[in-house]
Amino acid sequence: MFNFFKLVQNENMKIYRRPRTYVMLGLLLALIAAISIIGYFVDQNHTTSAWSMIMTEVMISYMLITVFAIIIASSGVADEFTSGTIKLLLIRPWSRSKVLLSKYIAVLLYALGMVVVMLIFTVIINMIVFGFADETAAEVISPLVSGSIVAYLLKYSLLKYVSLVVTTTLAFMLATVSRSGALAIGLSLFLILGVNSFTVLLASIKYKWADYILFIHLDLTQYLNDTPMRDGMTMGFSVLVLAIYYAVFVALAWYVFKKRDVAA
């Protein structure tokens, strides 16, 4: 098989040769820096620790990265259809599945890259603003958790990345099926930001079927502090539900992309 990596390289080129990618990154970093600096001046007594600031900013940043990843994932597929370049892309000696896979990998890499840059930047800027501190997770988060705060942050980020991947895959699937970037971005954002704010409500539904709603499982960090949204829910069950949704999204995206006549 001739170098599949080159396909991913192409998709990367299409992401990183666009100014908007850097605008998004700039927005994210500026927001983090702004929170830290404003926090520093507001907090007259300097009681805020660097790590509690880091945890807050990471949580906010994940929200923003999710939005950006949805935009990149949706437009990555849909733009090919709206601009008509999909026709030139598909008439090459590559199967449609692999073309789509290269796009998907590029999007996941983008999300990963954003997370890594965000983490490093957040830690560094807060160490500069608030000074280096060595704290335990119990001090920063809650007495219920143990271990070092760095280990906690890494676990937290990993679990958040899982939900980022599922969300991005949802957007990717919507874009592939609808071929419209606006629709995919709008719908994904509505589901993630809109419906997600009602998760507590959803979680309180008394019926059995509510156990299988995607949104109450999306945030796996609920298990880090041992505060699941529904009683009796376990991490294993949530991962299983997420895995099933994920498989459905992927199957749908690939099936539609492979079968559809390209008439755009």
């Binding site: 080159k6 396909l7 390289q9 192409n10 080129m13 299409k14 040769r17 666009r18 601009s83 008509g84 370049t85 026709k87 030139l88 892309l89 090459r92 000696p93 590559w94």
Partner: peptide, 19 residues
Amino acid sequence: EMYKYLTGYQNLVHFARMI
């Protein structure tokens, strides 16, 4: 239809990589 935000050369490199 080509990728408008890329240069002509980048477009050609893009398709060259696929074959």
